[in-house]
Simulated scan of single mutants.
Amino acid sequence: MTTRRRILGGATAAGVMAGLGGSLAAAADGSGAAGVDPAVRRRRARDAIVAVNSGMRANYAALKADLIAYLSPVLVVENDAKGGRFTLVHDGGQESLHPVGEVFELAKAVSHVPLGIFSIIAPHLGDRVPNIPGADRIDAHDLKMVAFGATGATGWITPLRSYADTLTAARRQLGGAGLPPGMAASCARVLDGALRFVEVSTAAGSFDIRSFEDFSADVHAALRTNMRYAAEAQIAGVQGVLRKWRAEIGEESWKDLYAVVLSQWATSVRNQNSLIIGPCMNPAKVATHLIDLPCAEPPEDPVFVALDNLARIVQDDIAAELVFPTDHAAADALKGPQDLLADEILDQLGGATAGGTPYSAPASAGDACPLRRRGTDGG
């Protein structure tokens, strides 16, 4: 492979250093800068210093780009509606597939019905938290931001009826989908409950948080049943493909497997696929080799995004020990997701946690801290 490095030719190392030294001396004594405005000289000097970091970044990026071709074996998982697209990268080759059975997608599709209705009616829920079970778990400020529309508006009726048409079509075809009996019953309960909510709400031209919670609470048991079927399909499919690939590449390669799971922030902790993959990896390396990578949106090329990030992680693992050979705390920071300046910043903040100046409500507000109401010690 062609590398980015070229050998300096036509000059010895001593000659190169002499040339650099002369340039630095000239810059230090201001030669050639007679008559230049002091502010301009300072800007040039600072730009020259910043160029040092620019040079580092260019070489760092080049190393990362070269390293990608040597990453192996790597499991890349892109979470999606079908349970995840899995790609095995090994010795320059790739294989991709969706290993999870279709029951997963079907169970999730129906389970998302309450969220689908919520997404249509949310702007018109009203910005006041009613006296309902779990009212203290609803952030009043967040509710005001989500319920940004007028409560008396009727613009939600048409899209809700349109969504109901989709639900009706699914309900009519449910019997022919070949679902397990228990799952078919739970899907019917969710769809029937949703259609009743739509019918009552659109006929009355109104709804509120309480009426929506009544609907969602009524179908909760059915949702849990669907979750069980989805989880069973997920586990069977993922474990099956991991066994297949493990046998193909052999134990010697498998023990060094990296797994990069791409997901959105909301599912990046205890991600469904990560939970299944972890026990199938080398136990000694799970903590460092199973990487949950949150993405703002699903990337166009998830394999490249995963490998690009992994290359950074791998080269930082080695660089950390060589750049900070006598400071293991700094080395650990460079190797992990912690910012290298985190400890220093916390020291200078007096050990305060992230979040800045602690919030203090006016005396007249009483115990208004939402975090405290949620059962934490924060304030």
Rank of each mutant, 00 (worst) to 15 (best):
I345A: 11
I345C: 07
I345N: 06
L346P: 00
L346R: 15
L346M: 09
L346Q: 12
D347Q: 14
D347R: 15
D347L: 14
D347I: 12
Q348A: 13
Q348N: 04
Q348E: 05
L349F: 01
L349H: 01
L349R: 05
L349D: 05
G350A: 01
G350D: 00
G350N: 06
G351C: 06
A352Y: 01
A352R: 09
A352K: 06
T353Y: 03
T353D: 01
A354V: 01
A354G: 03
G355P: 00
G355I: 00
G355R: 00
G355Y: 01
G355D: 02
G355A: 07
G356Q: 02
G356H: 03
G356Y: 04
G356F: 05
G356A: 02
G356W: 02
G356E: 04
T357M: 03
T357A: 12
T357V: 04
P358W: 11
P358Q: 09
P358K: 10
P358R: 12
P358D: 10
P358S: 05
Y359N: 05
A361G: 03
A361M: 05
A361F: 11
A361Q: 09
A361D: 04
P362V: 08
P362W: 13
A363T: 13
A363G: 12
A363S: 14
A363E: 15
A363M: 11
A363K: 11
S364P: 00
S364H: 10
S364I: 14
A365N: 07
A365K: 08
A365P: 07
A365Q: 13
G366Q: 09
G366C: 12
G366P: 04
G366M: 11
D367K: 15
D367F: 08
D367T: 12
D367Y: 03
A368Y: 08
A368E: 06
A368W: 10
A368K: 06
C369R: 12
C369V: 05
C369N: 13
P370V: 04
L371A: 15
L371Q: 14
L371D: 13
R372F: 10
R372I: 01
R372T: 08
R372L: 08
R373P: 00
R373I: 04
R373A: 15
R373F: 01
R373G: 07
G375V: 01
G375D: 03
G375P: 12
G375T: 02
T376D: 15
T376C: 12
T376K: 13
D377P: 01
D377Y: 10
D377E: 11
D377M: 07
G378M: 09
G378Q: 05
G378D: 14
G379F: 15
G379E: 12
G379Q: 14
G379A: 15
